[in-house]
Nucleic acid binder design. Structure first.
Lengths: 262, 262
DNA sequence: TCCGTGCCTTGACCTAGATCAACACAATTA
DNA sequence: TAATTGTGTTGATCTAGGTCAAGGCACGGA
C-alpha cells in the first residue's frame, strides 16, 4: 500500500501534496533519525544552530521513506511547498526544454539542499529524481520562513545556501561556456570528489550514481565524448575507470587538466 | 576630488568601502530620488511593500552618483557588504577564471539586483562594471537582513529575487549546454527585449550597451560567430542591425529560432 | 584633415566534438 | 541457455563554430 502510493507520486504530475502527506505520515511511524543526531547535521541546514534551535527546526522537518531509483521527489510545474535536504543516496535535477529535450541542472548528494529554484515562482521549475535508493527530508518553506524570523542564524544560513547555489551555477556557466571536453569532465570529477570529502568519504575512490548520458547532458557533451575522455584519462594514468567505479590516481594532474577551475 | 575618488575605486582592489562611503556621503547632498517616487519601484525591491514599509527601506538604501562607463561597483574578492539595485544605465558582472580569462555572467538593467552571489561567502565572487553611464543604489545587506525581520513582505520578496536568479542561471545553463549559435543569440535578444518591456521601453527597437565581444563571451561564442549570426538574421529580415542599434522585425520568427526557450 | 585605436564584419580555413554505426558486456527475462 | 535490453566503448566521418587574416567604419586627438 505504501509502495503503491509512492508509485503514484512518481507518475502523477501534481504529486507533491501526496508525497508531502506521505512524508508526514511516516514521521509518526518513528521512522526517522532526528536532526540533532543526523550525521549530516554539520553540513545541512542545522549548521550554525544551537542545540535548542536545532530542536525547533527538527519540529518542522518531515523525513521520508526511501525513494526508489527513478522516483521523483517533485516535477517541473508542481506547486512549490518544500525544499528538500538529501539524507542518503543521490538525485538529479533536470528541466525539460520546450522542444522536449532534457537538461540536467545538478546532482545532489547527502547534506545538500534541492528545490531552491521554486521559491521565486511558487512552482518548481525543475524536476528532482532519485538516481539510486535515496531518502530526503522535506522542509516546508512556510514553516522555515516563520522559524527563520525567530532564528537569525537559520535565516542567514539559508540565504547563504541560496547564494552558494547561485555561485555554483555561475561556476558551471563558466565551465560550459569556456571549457573543453577534458576540462569539463575533469572539473566534474573534482567537484564530485570534494563533495564526497565533505561527507568524510573517500575523495579518490567512488562510484558514480549517474550514467554517462546524464554526465554528458549535464556538461553539454555527448555520451561518446564523455566515454572517450574517461578512456583517455585512463590511458594517461590520471584515473582508473571500471564502469561506474572511479579511482582518481593523480588528482594534481586532474586539477591541471581542469584548469584549476575548482 | 570626487572624480578622483571614483577613479581610485575603479582601480584599487578593495575599493568597496570607499565606494560605499562615497555613496552615503552623496545622500546628504540631496542628490537622490526616494524609493517611493522612483519610477522603478514596481520592479525593484520595494515591490509588494506598503507605503510606510517603503519609507523604512528607503532609510537604509544609499544612492550613488552616476558611474562612468568602465567603472567598477565592486570587484571579485572584495568583501561583501551590500547588494546593488540598478537605477539607470546597464552593467555587466563577470568572473576571472584561474587562467586569466574573463567570463561574463550577466547583464543588469534598471530595476535589477546585482551582487547576490556574495552573500554565501561574504566575499564578492564576481565583479560588477558599468557598461555605460549608470547609477546604482547600494543596499547594505546587514540592514536589509534586520529590516527583513520586521517586514515579512520584504524578506519574502528578497528570497524570491534570489530564487529567480537561480532559475535564470539555470536557464542560461540550458542554453549554453544545448543551444546552437543561432538559438543563443536569438534567446539573448529576446531576453533583453522582454527586460526592456518591463521598463516600458520599446521591446523591438533598442541599443545594446554591450559589445559583440561581451555578448559572445556571455553566450560562449566568439565575436565572429555573434557577428555572423547578426548578419544572417538581418539577411532573413528577422532583425535590422546598425552597429549597436537593434530592431526586431519579426519576433515570432526570432522566438522560433530561439526554440521558444524564453 | 589625417592618423590612430577600437569595434565590427567578412572570408578562408581547420579542428573539437557531434553524429552515425558497430560492437561489447552485464543484468534480466523467457 | 538463449534472447533481450540497457549501458558503455570505440572507430569513421561530418560539421558547427573556432581561428586566422584582412579590411571597413566611426570617433577622438593633434
Amino acid at each position: 500500500m505504501d509502495g503503491q502510493a509512492v508509485k503514484v507520486s512518481a507518475t502523477k504530475v501534481s504529486a507533491i501534496k501526496v508525497s508531502d502527506a506521505l512524508l508526514e505520515a511516516r514521521c509518526t511511524h518513528g521512522y526517522q533519525v532526528s536532526c540533532s543526531n543526523c550525521r549530516l547535521g554539520a553540513m545541512c541546514l542545522p549548521l550554525a544552530l544551537k542545540r535548542e534551535e536545532i530542536d525547533e527546526l527538527e519540529f518542522i522537518v518531515k523525513r521520508g521513506q526511501p525513494l526508489q531509483r527513478g522516483e521523483h521527489v517533485f516535477r517541473e510545474n508542481d506547486p512549490f511547498h518544500s525544499i528538500y535536504a538529501v539524507r542518503s543516496g543521490s538525485l538529479k535535477s533536470y528541466r525539460t526544454t520546450p522542444d522536449g529535450q532534457e537538461q540536467v541542472t545538478g546532482f545532489f548528494l547527502p547534506g545538500e539542499i534541492a528545490g531552491l529554484d521554486g521559491i521565486g515562482t511558487n512552482t518548481h521549475l525543475s524536476s528532482l529524481l532519485a538516481l539510486e535508493t535515496a531518502s530526503v527530508c522535506a522542509i516546508p518553506f512556510n514553516s522555515l520562513e516563520l522559524l527563520g524570523k525567530e532564528l537569525p542564524h537559520l535565516q542567514r544560513h539559508f540565504l547563504r545556501l541560496m547564494s552558494r547555489e547561485i555561485a555554483e551555477d555561475q561556476q558551471l556557466i563558466t565551465l560550459l561556456s569556456k571549457g573543453t571536453a577534458d576540462q569539463k569532465v575533469a572539473s566534474f570529477l573534482l567537484g564530485i570528489s570534494s563533495r564526497l570529502a565533505r561527507q568524510d568519504l573517500s575523495p579518490t575512490s567512488f562510484r558514480l550514481s549517474m550514467s554517462r548520458v546524464e554526465i554528458g547532458n549535464y556538461l553539454g557533451l555527448t555520451v561518446e565524448t564523455v566515454s572517450r575522455v574517461f578512456s583517455k584519462l585512463q590511458k594517461q594514468f590520471v584515473l582508473a575507470v571500471d564502469n561506474k567505479e572511479i579511482e582518481l590516481s593523480d588528482c594534481d594532474r586532474l586539477r591541471e587538466i581542469a584548469g584549476i577551475v575548482d
